[in-house]
Nucleic acid binder design. Structure first.
Lengths: 229, 229
DNA sequence: TAAAACTGTTACGTAACTGTCACAAAAGCA
DNA sequence: TGCTTTTGTGACAGTTACGTAACAGTTTTA
């Protein structure tokens, strides 16, 4: 599995909830670690240095709010975004009032989709622009930081959408993405765009990638979507 | 031809409600199956493996919450998103609903449009990767994520229907599927296609699988259907 | 400000895939 | 054995999904 998967630490004491969230987070392609209480959470944070923390409000012993407070005190963990899960909206207000420093909070009952979106949103913040890292596939190199793409040492000119599209593909080479998933990822949720638009942009990406002679690395999977390689 | 319709399982004991939802879900292009109580629901889930479940909270015998809990325990059904419908709006219930592992929650009275949107949203998440897993049978490997099928290390070229057909077979090797069941599963419900069409596609699948020398792994069960192995 | 770049949609050509049929082959049955 | 039923399969016409050029509207850049 990709060594540079985003790491998510989930802190939740209720087993059923935890299971579901773990399942979904993994399906999103995150590396998930779990803590079932506050102490474990603090230890695991040290050990794993996750990119984002999903933290339940109500927990035995050390409450989520306290965990969050402690994390935000230490300089080395302060930068990790914390998403709080809270059962009641009033308490969320209190959270806000107390300034625990949570970066986002989601009120139960939440939609899992929504929570995933928030996690991704926080990750984008921390690892800017599709993980400020450098992704490589074959002779294609995508530099998230400088926003530049090269193929065989040669720089390609991509529009913003093509860049994000390629970034998504390169996150998981070989994985087939449906048009809907790509719309979700590249265009953003709740956007009303025809699915065929994806085809057009894939076409443009292909053109850019093959401009100076390379083979087309984008695979069309009829009836399913597209993938890289 | 709307092959490959998403399958929705609706679990609702109240007839009027059920009618409305079935009507709307079908209008959206989903294949709908119904259960009127918890036990039926659990059985149907096994049989139909729906892509998403819409589950009423209050039901005789086995409550929605209990059905959901059980589904989320089993690994093979855990991945199916569950949308809970509840008549009560008190927060306690909402929270408990999610704690059982429901993926989304809609409070009655809801807007049908909203419910449809939620169903679609959940589907977008799981659909093409219905089985993001890798299935293996003998020297045949089907990778749901990359949509690739290999036999003896060699990649096979399958059309979408053959791919789904093989996927269905490989989910439960040895199980005999009737032509009707396969039409349901692979083509989608409410589709008017001659049952003999199944034969043709099985033939095509066989040809692809034996192209480079292997034995035919598909067994014909006269008078009953087909199975893998 | 104009020019350039980018976007989403449409329309149309094409290649791939689909479903049906007809007939051949096989399997069951008496 | 002959007769009936079921299955295998090549051929073919119809359909669908995809690739892409063109275009108009919008945003960004100079």
């Amino acid at each position: 599995m990709a060594a540079d998967q985003p790491r998510v630490l989930l802190v939740e004491d209720e087993p059923a909830q935890r299971e579901v969230l773990v399942y979904n987070l993994k399906a999103e392609g995150f590396a998930v670690s779990c803590a079932v209480n506050g102490e474990d959470a603090l230890l695991l944070v040290q050990e794993e240095m996750p990119d984002v923390i999903v933290l339940d409000w109500m927990m035995p012993r050390l409450s989520g709010i306290e965990v969050c407070r402690r994390l935000k005190i230490k300089p080395e963990t302060r930068g990790i975004p914390v998403i709080m899960l809270s059962a009641r909206s009033e308490e969320v207000d209190r959270v806000r009032g107390l300034e625990t420093g949570a970066d986002d909070y989601v009120v139960k009952p939440y939609s899992v989709l929504e929570l995933m979106a928030r996690v991704r949103a926080q990750l984008r913040r921390v690892r800017p622009a599709t993980s400020g890292q450098v992704l490589t596939y074959d002779d294609i190199v995508l530099d998230g930081e400088s926003h530049k793409v090269t193929r065989a040492e040669q720089e390609l000119k991509l529009g913003p959408t093509e860049f994000r599209l390629l970034g998504t593909f390169m996150e998981k080479p070989g994985r087939v993405w449906s048009r809907e998933q790509l719309l979700d990822r590249v265009w953003g949720r709740d956007i009303f765009v025809d699915t065929r638009t994806v085809d057009v942009h894939v076409g443009r990406l292909r053109k850019a990638l093959t401009m100076s002679g390379g083979l087309d690395p984008v695979r069309t999977v009829r009836g399913a979507g597209y993938s890289l390689g």
